[in-house]
């Protein structure tokens, strides 16, 4: 097999399940060489765990998996910035038990705390890194049904995974417009007055993000795994 960029090989193993080769991963960007960037928030182990779960949510097919599209980078960035620190979240005590789901989020944790503590607790329920793809999917399903911090964590990660896959690439996910190309969403530059009632659609314009004209996505997704180059 052709020699893969080594960190990406590890990403492939982590993300797709042990033993599955990651041939065909997109290394399509001029900045692809910048791969020793540390995580802003995650430890390598946390990043691996997130990648495994995110790729259960959105696995690879003709389009990249979540982690291949930069979802882990996206979540890392979110956790290190305002959202992770609890912006838009009222966290005044008390936090009584007995909440019903209709009352929404009632934990005392910021998203960053939820991810860190949730991942730690989830680690006690099984080692996702050693599971094959089917076992991972079952494991994520079971975690999602739990009525505790792990269940809340999985719900939060599913939300964040979709955001990372489809948000503007300025947030480091949706790399190379993976999500937008998959559905056919042309992005931020939007003027459709002349087309909206056309009988037959013309070709959807290629995606363009907010910073497209300034060079598009600044970085490709980080390699995940911390393996040696």
């Amino acid at each position: 097999m052709a020699k893969l960029y080594s960190r990406r090989a590890i990403l492939a193993q982590i993300a797709l399940g042990a033993g599955v080769a990651g041939a065909g991963l997109p290394v399509s960007h001029a900045f692809a060489a910048q791969d020793d960037r540390p995580w802003s928030f995650f430890t390598d182990a946390e990043a691996q765990w997130i990648a495994a779960v995110a790729d259960v949510f959105i696995p690879q097919d003709d389009f990249p998996s979540a982690s291949q599209a930069g979802v882990v980078d996206f979540i890392d960035f979110q956790m290190a910035t305002a959202y992770g620190a609890g912006e838009g979240l009222y966290l005044d005590p008390p936090f009584p038990s007995g909440a019903v789901p209709e009352q929404g989020y009632q934990l005392k944790f910021t998203p960053a705390q939820l991810l860190r503590q949730g991942i730690e607790q989830a680690g006690q329920l099984g080692d996702i890194a050693t599971m094959d793809a089917t076992a991972r999917a079952d494991h994520v399903e079971q975690m999602s049904e739990r009525d505790d911090i792990v269940g809340t964590l999985i719900a939060e990660l599913w939300k964040l995974t979709k955001q990372g896959y489809f948000a503007d690439p300025i947030y480091l996910g949706n790399h190379d417009y993976a999500g937008w190309r998959m559905v056919g969403f042309p992005g931020a530059h939007a003027y459709y007055t002349e087309r909206v009632d056309a009988d037959k659609r013309s070709v959807t314009p290629p995606p363009r993000g907010i910073a497209h004209d300034r060079g598009g996505t600044p970085y490709p997704p980080r390699a995940i795994g911390g393996g040696s180059d």
Binding site: E87, L89, Y90, L91, G98, A99, V100, E102, Q103, Y105
Partner: peptide, 22 residues
């Protein structure tokens, strides 16, 4: 911004209303 002002919510008077945290 709910950090500044929010409300509490319950479906009926038998429940304890809890804050709309987001």
């Amino acid at each position: 911004d709910v950090k500044k002002e929010t409300l509490t919510i319950r479906n009926n008077r038998d429940q304890q209303a809890l804050p709309m945290r987001r």
